[in-house]
């Protein structure tokens, strides 16, 4: 990959990065991240896309300097996490996959306590908290206990909290998982604003639309390895046809039909409840399908998405 920017503009660099976990003292170590490499420049929004267990969170934890790498090199803001973990952590923000808010404390107290952990002066944290509550639209709820917040509000608070130390890099592990569509869009909006303000975003997601919306570049991960790296459009261009024709037949008939129609598409993919035909022009292909009296129950022509890229690369769907 060509990085034509000065080396000091690369905020994050990994090479041959490995994470192994030992589940019990005696068991064989399990390899969660299996030799991955990537580089992220200042101001980019970079995504890790992959199914459950792909190793996204493990990678994020290594970048966040809360989990030592088992092998390989990692540089965050030019520093080595093994030597300068605390220093790196003081300059990054983390939104973990699990909620780590203190439900008994109030919204404001959660930010105050977190800021104090960074060693920020009390007065500075107070001012910052007010500003962040405004950003997260939680000013009205500032003094209510976190227990009483909705999932979306908690997520906004976690993001607000992660900004208390003015981070240069923000790590977001599945920022919108579990939120309803409206809350997701509201959160994306916040993340856009952060990106525009110059913060480098590193995020993981299961969601194709999220990756397409937010990421300048992304890697697709599967079984601890990177199977592709590119821009969202580049990935689709390289690993899929522009359009997809989705057909539904009677249960059980999908694979028979796949054989019959294979020659009409660049590639076919049989899913339990759908047949996907990858083609440059979905409408024309549909006309040909109908001309063969194939009679699908339903049909749909759509643009290819990262979901299709993932399916092509791994033979599996992303969300199980």
């Amino acid at each position: 990959m060509a990085l034509q920017t000065p080396a000091d503009d690369v905020l994050l660099h990994a090479d041959g990065l490995v994470k192994r976990y030992r589940r019990t003292r005696r068991s064989e170590p399990f390899t969660a991240v299996d030799g991955i490499g990537f580089a992220v420049r200042r101001g980019e929004a970079f995504g890790f896309l992959g199914p459950n267990g792909a190793g996204k969170s493990s990678t994020m934890r290594m970048i966040a300097c809360v989990s030592p790498a088992s092998a390989g090199t990692l540089r965050v803001l030019g520093h080595d996490p093994a030597a300068d973990g605390a220093l790196i952590r003081s300059r990054i923000g983390v939104v973990p996959q699990d909620d780590t808010l203190d439900a008994e404390l109030t919204v404001r107290e959660n930010i105050l306590v977190y800021g104090r952990y960074f060693g920020l002066p009390r007065r500075a944290v107070r001012g910052k908290a007010a500003e962040l509550l405004e950003f997260a639209q939680l000013t009205e709820r500032a003094d209510s206990p976190v227990e009483n917040l909705s999932g979306g509000m908690r997520r906004r608070l976690t993001i607000a909290r992660s900004l208390v130390n003015d981070p240069e890099i923000l790590l977001l592990d599945e920022p919108t998982t579990g939120l309803d569509p409206q809350a997701r869009h509201a959160l994306w909006d916040k993340l856009f604003r952060l990106k525009r303000s110059g913060i480098t975003l590193i995020l993981t997601t299961h969601y194709m639309d999220e990756a397409e919306q937010l990421c300048d570049r992304l890697v697709v991960m599967d079984h601890g390895r990177i199977v592709a790296t590119d821009t969202p459009a580049g990935l689709i261009g390289r690993h899929s046809t522009p359009e997809v024709l989705e057909l539904r037949f009677h249960p059980g008939a999908q694979s028979v039909m796949a054989e019959k129609l294979a020659d009409l598409a660049v590639r076919t993919e049989v899913l339990p409840e759908r047949l996907l035909l990858y083609t440059a022009d979905g409408r024309t292909t549909l006309t040909r399908v109908l001309a063969r009296n194939a009679d699908p129950l339903t049909s749909l022509v759509r643009r290819a998405t990262l979901e299709d890229v993932f399916l092509t690369l791994t033979g599996r769907t992303l969300v199980d």
Partner: peptide, 12 residues
């Protein structure tokens, strides 16, 4: 509650 997990993400 996970206060430790939150705190470990900071500089402590």
């Amino acid at each position: 509650r996970g206060n430790y997990r939150a705190a470990t993400a900071t500089s402590v």
